[in-house]
Amino acid sequence: MAKIDKILNQEGIDRIAINPYQKYSRGYMEPGNLGGGYVTGLKVDAGTREKTDDSMLDGIVSYDRAECKNAYIGQINMMTASSFTGVQGHILGYDLLRNPAVDKAQPLFYETQWDGSKLPIYDGKPLQDSLVEFFGTADNRRHYPAPGSFIVCANKGVTAERPLEDRPLNPGEAYGVWSAIAISIAKDPVHNSSMFIEDAGTWNTPNEDDLNEFLYHRREAIARSIAQCGQDASTSFASSWIGFAHVMMKPGEIGNAITVGPYFSMPVDAVPGGSILTPDVDMNIMEDLSLPEWLEKMGYQSIVENQDIQY
Score class of each variant (00 low, 15 high):
residue 108 L to S: 09
residue 113 Q to T: 13
residue 107 P to L: 05
residue 181 I to S: 04
residue 72 Y to T: 01
residue 258 I to D: 07
residue 69 K to R: 12
residue 178 W to Q: 03
residue 80 T to V: 10
residue 171 P to Y: 09
residue 15 R to Q: 04
residue 163 P to S: 00
residue 153 C to W: 04
residue 190 V to S: 15
residue 281 V to A: 06
residue 81 A to F: 05
residue 296 E to R: 08
residue 80 T to Y: 03
residue 114 W to Y: 15
residue 67 E to C: 11
residue 122 Y to W: 05
residue 190 V to N: 13
residue 170 N to T: 12
residue 165 E to D: 12
residue 94 Y to N: 03
residue 301 Q to K: 10
residue 171 P to L: 08
residue 179 S to L: 02
residue 288 D to E: 14
residue 52 T to P: 14
residue 66 A to N: 03
residue 305 E to A: 13
residue 65 R to C: 06
residue 72 Y to Q: 07
residue 279 P to C: 03
residue 310 Q to W: 09
residue 281 V to N: 08
residue 235 T to V: 15
residue 118 K to G: 10
residue 117 S to A: 01
residue 210 D to Q: 05
residue 196 F to E: 00
residue 97 L to S: 05
residue 55 S to L: 13
residue 21 Y to I: 02
residue 162 R to Y: 07
residue 76 I to G: 01
residue 93 G to M: 02
residue 299 G to S: 10
residue 233 A to P: 07
residue 97 L to M: 06
residue 50 E to F: 04
residue 78 M to A: 12
residue 248 M to K: 04
residue 39 V to A: 07
residue 270 A to K: 00
residue 13 I to Y: 05
residue 212 N to D: 15
residue 51 K to E: 09
residue 24 Y to P: 13
residue 107 P to T: 10
residue 123 D to A: 08
residue 136 G to T: 08
residue 276 I to Y: 06
residue 122 Y to Q: 06
residue 263 Y to E: 14
residue 59 G to K: 06
residue 241 W to S: 07
residue 237 F to L: 11
residue 79 M to H: 07
residue 248 M to N: 13
residue 118 K to R: 14
residue 44 V to P: 10
residue 253 E to P: 03
residue 294 W to H: 11
residue 73 I to F: 14
residue 213 E to V: 15
residue 79 M to T: 09
residue 191 H to R: 15
residue 136 G to P: 06
residue 265 S to Y: 11
residue 4 I to D: 11
residue 84 F to P: 12
residue 306 N to G: 05
residue 160 A to N: 11
residue 289 L to H: 09
residue 292 P to M: 08
residue 83 S to L: 04
residue 1 M to T: 03
residue 227 A to C: 08
residue 298 M to Q: 11
residue 201 G to A: 04
residue 19 N to C: 12
residue 136 G to R: 04
residue 247 V to M: 15
residue 73 I to W: 10
residue 243 G to S: 02
residue 286 M to V: 09
residue 239 S to D: 15
residue 13 I to S: 04
residue 198 E to F: 05
residue 252 G to D: 14
residue 300 Y to T: 01
residue 220 E to F: 09
residue 204 N to P: 11
residue 62 S to L: 11
residue 211 L to Y: 02
residue 29 M to A: 10
residue 21 Y to P: 09
residue 131 L to V: 02
residue 104 K to D: 08
residue 127 L to Q: 02
residue 146 A to F: 05
residue 10 Q to E: 15
residue 252 G to K: 08
residue 311 Y to T: 14
residue 130 S to Y: 07
residue 56 M to H: 11
residue 82 S to G: 14
residue 3 K to D: 14
residue 273 G to A: 00
residue 296 E to D: 13
residue 61 V to E: 03
residue 239 S to V: 10
residue 153 C to K: 01
residue 33 N to R: 13
residue 11 E to M: 12
residue 273 G to M: 04
residue 196 F to Y: 06
residue 102 V to E: 10
residue 264 F to L: 13
residue 6 K to D: 15
residue 300 Y to A: 00
residue 203 W to A: 03
residue 102 V to W: 00
residue 288 D to T: 04
residue 226 I to Q: 01
residue 232 D to W: 12
residue 289 L to Y: 09
residue 214 F to I: 12
residue 243 G to K: 00
